[in-house]
Amino acid sequence: MPRKIRVLVAKPGLDGHDRGAKVIARALRDAGMEVIYTGIRQTPDQIANAAIQESVDIVGLSSLSGAHNNLFPKVVQILKDKGAEDILVFGGGIIPVDDIPGLKKAGVREIFQPGASTEDIIKYIRENVKV
């Protein structure tokens, strides 16, 4: 039997809107994944460290405050600096479509926008994480 996919759901920055992050964490759990939710107000450093310590396969970042362009790439970079570039990073929240190319170029693998379903996210993770 393959092991369970491990996911870190994280809230970088000062944004406290975590309805989406919590709903996704629970949906992934219900889909059989092991999910760790960081809680709100995490720095990119804290998130990258948690991802490494918990040996997750993938990190989901949620931000609704508009700070995604600063914060998401930093998480990717810190993971890379620590030799953990195999941990995939995806994101979601209130993210204008014109910001997506820049985020992807910085190494964020996928961005889910308002209206995305938890099914879409589950499918994406299953297709992109090899266990």
């Binding site: 920055g13 508009g66 600063n70």
Partner: peptide
């Protein structure tokens, strides 16, 4: 309770 020059304010100044 952070000023605009605080490290935790990075990316958040004037946003919401």
């Amino acid at each position: 309770g952070y000023d605009s020059d605080h490290p935790l304010s990075d990316g958040e100044v004037g946003k919401v």
